[in-house]
């Protein structure tokens, strides 16, 4: 009895609300005029100027580099730590997990200035390293909360069974545990990567000596007024995100697992 009718008008209205600004930006990114309200002609010039802008390109480079290093390191450390947590007593692991939750629960701003204060306190020089450390700091918790639940569902007896059958501990890990964790480890990496690319507040307070990322670059430009290069940047990022999500969804076994992992993060 379910007819193929459209979703409720309220839902559609929300979708329009959510996507309109972005689509407007994308449209204006092709507009000849600067201010954008009046359509003066189709052009690619803002895109060209974007790619000529050294600052932005450098910022993009830093963004990807930091995201890549941070997420890879965090995934390694996070997975090993999750393994350790699995074998800890509930009391100790509870404490560690609560601490682990702090960067996720605290507002960005508080985390950002606490890190900045620490760096000042330790008289560190602000730059690439301080930025990278900050990104690793908030990425590892995401990996842990992604991998740990999956790990917990694997019976402790499986390692024992593998060794009982003749596998050395490392062999058992590689042949039995890791294959079952593969999905969540990759998810963890992707989530850490995305969080890193997207980050503004923490990066803003922990970077220095000319190291910036996309968000910081946009912020500086936006502070100074409307800049069509930002429109062009938005379009590119929007398309990139859609592209990424489509790829991820094609590779997933089940979308429900995907959504469940993202929910897990949200609800944390």
């Amino acid at each position: 009895m379910k007819k193929k009718r459209m979703p409720h008008w309220l839902v559609l209205l929300l979708l329009v609300f959510l996507y309109m600004p972005i689509l407007v930006l994308i449209t204006y990114s092709f507009n000849e005029g600067r201010t954008g309200a009046k359509w003066t002609g189709f052009t690619f010039k803002w895109y060209i100027e974007l790619f000529r802008d050294r600052n932005i390109l450098r910022a993009m480079g830093y963004t990807v580099l930091i995201a890549f290093i941070a997420s890879t390191l965090s995934t390694l450390v996070g997975t090993v730590t999750a393994w350790g947590i699995r074998y800890m007593k509930r009391n100790t692991s509870g404490l560690l997990l609560t601490i682990n939750d702090l960067p996720l629960l605290n507002p960005d701003l508080v985390t950002a200035i606490s890190l900045m204060s620490l760096y000042i306190f330790l008289k560190m020089r602000f730059g690439f390293m301080t930025l990278l450390l900050a990104h690793i700091m908030f990425s590892i918790p995401y990996v842990i909360i992604t991998v740990l639940p999956v790990l917990r569902r694997i019976s402790k007896h499986q390692m024992e069974a593998a060794m009982d059958l003749g596998a050395r501990p490392v062999e058992a890990l590689l042949k039995v545990i890791l294959p079952q964790l593969k999905q969540s480890i990759i998810s963890g990496w992707l989530i850490a990567f995305t969080m890193s690319i997207d980050d503004f507040v923490i990066s803003f307070f922990t970077t220095g000596s000319g190291v910036s990322n996309i968000s910081i670059a946009v912020f500086s430009m936006a502070r100074r007024g409307i800049n069509p290069k930002i429109n062009a940047l938005s379009s590119i990022m929007f398309v990139a995100v859609i592209f990424l999500l489509l790829i991820i969804n094609k590779n997933r076994k089940s979308r429900k697992e995907d959504l469940a992992i993202e929910e897990n993060i949200l609800l944390h």
Binding site: E160, A162, V176
Partner: peptide
């Protein structure tokens, strides 16, 4: 060799 309580099959 051992047969575990919840089988521990992979």
């Amino acid at each position: 060799n051992t047969v575990f309580q919840n089988y521990a099959l992979f």
